[in-house]
Amino acid sequence: MTRFMKWLGVVVVIFIAAPLVIVVPMSFSTARSLQFPPPGYGLGYYQAYFSDPSWLIPTWNSIIIATATTVLTMLLVVPATFALVRHQFRGRSIADLMMLMPLAVPSIVMAVGYYSYFGAMGIVHTHIGVVLAHTALAVPIAFLVLSANLKGFDRTLERAAMSLGASPTKTFIHVTLPILRPGLIISALFAFIHSFDETVVSIFISGRNAETLPRKMFDSIRQEADPVIAVISTLLFALVLLGLVGPRLVAALRNRRPRVQAA
C-alpha cells in the first residue's frame, strides 16, 4: 500500500511538472511555431520578446494594472478585515459574505457583467476599468489570507503595548503592523499575482488600449502559436521560483549564524 502511494505521488508530481518540462525547452527553440521536442536551440525568441513592442506594451500594462490593483485591494482589505474580524456589528455576516462573493461567481459571469456595466460608464478598454474589475476579484483572496492572520493575532500584545505607554496609533505602528507584516505581504502578493494572471475578464474589457499580457498570449496562441509565449512562461516561472525559493534561502542563510539554545 505504502509503495503504491509512493509511486502514485511520483506520477502526480510528474503530471504536474510536465508542462514546465515542455515549456522551458520550447522557449529556447529555433522552430517557427510551438513544437516539441525543439529541432534546435537558441536565444532567438528571447531577443524577439525583449525587442518587440507588441509584447513589451502588454507586459507593462500588466505590471501597471497589477500594481494598481494591489494598492487598491490592500487599501480596501486592510480596514475591512480589521472591522470584520475584530468588531461585532449588525450586518457583519452579510458583509463577510459579500467580500467573498466574487470568488464564488464564475469569472465569465463577472466578465460579462463588467463588460456591459463598464461600457455604460465609459471605462471599458481603459486601465482604470481593468484595475477596478481586478480589484473586485482580488479582494476576497487578499481578505481570506489577511483575516486568517488577524484571527491568530494575540491581542494581549496590543494591551501590553498600551500599558507600556503606546497610544492606539503607536501600538498599531510598532506592534500590530510589524507582527502582521508577513500576512500583509502574502496577501498583497496574492492580489498582484491574481491580477497579473487574470485572463477572462481581461479578454472582455481590456481592449487594445489596456491589453494585458495573458490576453496578448491568448490572442497570439490562437493566431500563430508564437514561441515567444514559451519565453514568457519560462520567465514567469523563473520569477515565481525566485519568489518562493528566495525567502527560504535568505532564512536558511540567516539561521546559519550560531543559534543559542534557550536554557
Binding site: T156, L157, A160, S163, I179
Partner: peptide, 20 residues
C-alpha cells in the same frame, strides 16, 4: 485616562512579549 496614559506596568499571564 486611557491605558497608555496611566503609567501602570502589567505582566500578563502569557507575558505578551513582542515576538519581533
Amino acid at each position: 485616562l486611557a491605558p497608555h496614559e496611566r503609567n501602570i506596568g502589567i505582566v500578563f499571564q502569557n507575558y505578551g512579549l513582542f515576538p519581533h
